[in-house]
Amino acid sequence: MKNLKLYTDAELFDLVKNGHSFAFSEIYNRYWEILFRHAYRLLKDKDLAKDIVQEVFVSLWDKIGELDLQFSINAYLYKSVRNKVLNLIEKDKVKNNYLESLAAFINSSEAITDYRLRERLLKEKIEKEIADLPPKMRQIFEMSRKQNLSHRQIAKELNLSDKTVKKQMSNAIKILRLKLGGFIVLSILLKLISI
């Protein structure tokens, strides 16, 4: 068998379809870096870009038996990355629109008294979840959200790198979304039921 680097994409694809995982490894090695750069250029987030590319390759592996590529594997992979990025952006846009409309509703002067009570309970729940964050993460989160300091200012004050501060903020937001997601939905459902 000749060196895999000498195989065309079409030849590698046929080998993978016939169960040769070493050919899949070659496709992965050939395109991972290029696809990562493509995803990063669109998202400006290395972790998200890595996740997207990984998902594309997992999906390719899962669907390889069903695929009948009319275009090159290169075109298929690029299109898959682009579609996953667009789906992620759309999902974030919907989530942001939801949160903005929720914030507008909460700030509405028409909110009834019992809703204000639920709002206070939600704020208390948020404060409790923030207090439960690991100490350094909580400190960074509060400096950012309550003192309105930039990542650079926080990094300088705590003698940390900007990257560490950014990662801690990202982790804090992920944790809070996970812990508060159901509570926010429940709060809205209770409001709708009481109307």
Rank of each mutant, 00 (worst) to 15 (best):
R138L: 01
I106S: 02
R82C: 09
A103Y: 14
V85C: 05
K46D: 09
Y115S: 04
L42C: 03
N3I: 14
M137S: 06
P135R: 15
N159Q: 10
R82G: 05
A75L: 11
M143W: 03
Q147I: 04
D9L: 04
I64W: 04
L35A: 00
N96T: 13
Q70G: 03
E66H: 11
E33A: 10
F57S: 00
R116G: 03
L149V: 11
S161G: 10
E26A: 12
P134Y: 12
D9F: 05
E110F: 13
K123G: 06
N159R: 14
E66Q: 13
R116L: 12
S194Y: 14
S21W: 05
L69C: 03
K166C: 03
D132E: 15
E124F: 11
E129P: 01
L149K: 15
L43D: 01
K163D: 06
K79L: 09
N18H: 15
K91H: 14
F105Q: 09
M169V: 10
Q168G: 00
E55Y: 08
L48V: 05
I89R: 08
R120G: 05
D162Q: 06
K167L: 10
R145N: 10
D68M: 09
A75F: 12
V185E: 02
K146A: 01
E26D: 04
S194H: 14
K125T: 08
S59E: 13
A111Y: 09
E142R: 15
K50D: 13
E129C: 05
I126C: 04
R82D: 15
F57M: 00
V16E: 00
D114P: 08
L35D: 00
K63W: 10
Q54E: 04
I184E: 00
E142Y: 08
L6R: 14
L15D: 00
S101K: 13
N3G: 11
N159L: 10
N171Q: 14
N74E: 05
R152L: 07
W61N: 00
R116W: 08
W61S: 01
E55P: 03
E26M: 12
L160A: 04
K125D: 02
L180A: 03
S187P: 01
K179F: 07
T164R: 07
E90T: 13
S109Y: 07
Q147C: 02
S72M: 13
E66A: 11
